[in-house]
Design a protein around this nucleic acid. Structure first.
Lengths: 347, 347
DNA sequence: GGCAAAAAGGAAATCGTTTTCCTTCCCCCG
DNA sequence: CGGGGGAAGGAAAACGATTTCCTTTTTGCC
């Protein structure tokens, strides 16, 4: 592991000063053909690449963007990263990545440390609202993703209220009456979803029964399933915090002999790719995860460039209902259900 | 956005030299209680955090690890990142992340640029074998993941030959005879899989029919499905390059009215979490993705520390068969297949 | 009380660049 | 032929730390 060549080596080899080399590399100034040729030759010969750290010290730009993600295993976040990465790459930026799942407590510290190494941050976690000002005080441009951020900051997210509202509308229209909602208890990041669902049901004189998962994961969906199904007043539809929970839920429900959608409708939120391949295919709401990452990165790049973002404050992406096979139309109150497995006798 | 305090500010505030502050921060030297108290007070008051870039320039350590991944949307790679991230975090390292999918051509350049900002690299892509020496010449420790790397370098991966071999054994034992393999044509990263499957079938006088997908994705699995099923000599089992391809394949096959596993067995490789939730649940081989990331990172950290890695050369992780419902025992050659669901009559 | 040795703290070089002035040098024109 | 002006290239000061010597003080001990 021999030391890498420095600009000084190049200058020596080419017989010019380091200032000249620097200016040549950056295209700051033109030089005589002879000099430029010598410099280029020296660079090639030594396989010189300038040290980005040293450059950063001077320019104050690092060329990387920090991306703080709750859990990379969740395809929703994976998609965000994918979109953000694409845009960043197009603009010559790298992604410095932090998955905070394991260390919620250290989150603020991690972000603070990270902030020195990047030109800006995309923060997409469930960090408590009161910690946000600390992130903003870091002195780097920040875009919050997936939540509405405090006054004066920039954020982007799906319209979760609308998403939940359209799910409520769908289910009611399909004839469901006893609708359960499986939410995400710690940190309550689902206020808007709850409100959207509650409002839509209320318009029809209904209200959701609420259940709590401990996290937005497959495992929690599985765990919470029996709680929901064994409780009093079995629901005829379940709205899950996200697709992961919904998929886990469906898996266990099926194992328990519940037929979906005949016995029970299930709806998720996010539209992760695998929702198409579950049995039945999952009805959900598309949250445009990848676009979220792309647009978030675009906003951030503008912030970094010192331009006013095209959309200061909170940018809302429109959700889109994705109707598949895990929900179905139900007959009014008492449906006979012809097939071998007749089940319903509401009162 | 006011400027952040420097070590000079702290020194001034505390009435000591910057050398003293530096030594205090790094614990390099002890000072009198009075001085230490003043320094600490100054640090707190100014909310000083040392600039990692400046520190890196001197120490030559950056505190980040570069992770180069083919496609973050593939849960296999996501798991690798997750595992690597966990270990890195435990050791105080960040992850600098590159998803190269969009820019295979620029891959080498991206890595070269990245290499200056990190203390080591984990490379998990399909980069052509002849480009690997270039990566090694970067002068940073590298661990290649998911492939066998050149002499003198460190790599880690599943034993793909064994994985494919055990799939072949399983299928033959279950009575399958016409076995198709859906591989990954560009860059042929599946040599070992092909060989393992071929060898296992050959032991029973059989040979796989090969089909090519253009990428290891859901979409390619879907696309290739009709090709496989419409060709002459329909197979009774399909082995897919990975779970993604298998899941896409199963989705389309089901749509086409093929019953799995009654009409056709399907096997994947990787054991991604969603394989449990497809219909039917996917038989696969676990490639320990997360452990791959963890162990890869451990190897790299040892390399960085200058210690001999516990396992120089190539480390093989053992695959493990995960038998689920997408494969089933078949009767000898011509199976009548009586009633819709009755199927078994071993003998 | 005197002297050596250890403790405490600081000056300055350094890491590899960028960038802001300068200094030359050359050419052209009156 | 002299002088003005631009072109070409270089010197040196940053950037914000770490680290290697030093120079002072203390302290310990006889």
């Amino acid at each position: 592991m021999k030391k890498r060549p420095t600009i000084r080596d190049v200058a020596g080899q080419a017989g010019v000063s380091i200032a000249t080399v620097s200016k040549f590399i950056n295209g700051t100034q033109r030089f005589s053909a002879a000099v430029e040729r010598r410099i280029q030759a020296a660079i090639d010969e030594l396989a010189y690449h300038s040290n980005p750290l040293a450059r950063s010290m001077i320019t104050g730009k690092t060329g990387s963007i920090g991306v703080v993600i709750l859990d990379i295993l969740n395809p929703h976040f994976t998609n965000i990263v994918k979109g953000a990465n694409r845009i960043a790459l197009e603009h010559g930026y790298n992604l410095l990545f932090v998955d905070t799942e394991e260390s919620q407590a250290r989150e603020s510290d991690l972000i603070a440390a990270l902030s020195r190494r990047v030109d800006g941050l995309i923060v997409s976690t469930r960090m408590p609202q009161e910690d946000l000002p600390g992130v903003l005080a870091l002195g780097k441009p920040v875009v919050f993703s997936g939540r509405v951020a405090p006054e004066g900051s920039v954020s982007i997210g799906i319209d979760a209220y609308a998403a939940a509202y359209m799910i409520g509308e769908l289910l009611v229209k399909q004839g469901h009456r006893k609708i359960a909602y499986v939410g995400f208890a710690p940190a309550r990041p689902d206020q808007e979803r709850i409100k959207g669902l509650t409002d839509s049901l209320a318009a029809h004189g209904l209200a959701p029964t609420r259940f709590e998962a401990q996290g937005p994961t497959l495992a929690e969906g599985e765990r919470v399933c029996s709680t929901v199904l064994l409780g009093k007043g079995k629901p005829d539809a379940v709205v899950c915090y996200n697709d992961l929970v919904a998929i886990g839920f469906m898996g266990v429900a099926t194992t328990l002999g519940i037929r979906i959608p005949e016995d029970l409708s299930v709806v998720g939120i996010d539209n992760i790719p695998f929702g198409r391949f579950t049995s039945p295919a999952l009805t959900t709401v598309d949250t445009q995860s990848e676009k979220l990452g792309e647009e978030g990165m675009r906003l951030l790049l503008r912030l970094i460039a010192g331009e006013d973002p095209p959309a200061p404050g909170h940018t809302r992406l429109e959700p889109r209902l994705v109707l598949r096979d895990s929900t179905r139309v139900r007959l009014a109150e008492a449906s006979p259900g012809p097939a071998p497995k007749a089940r319903r006798r509401a009162g």
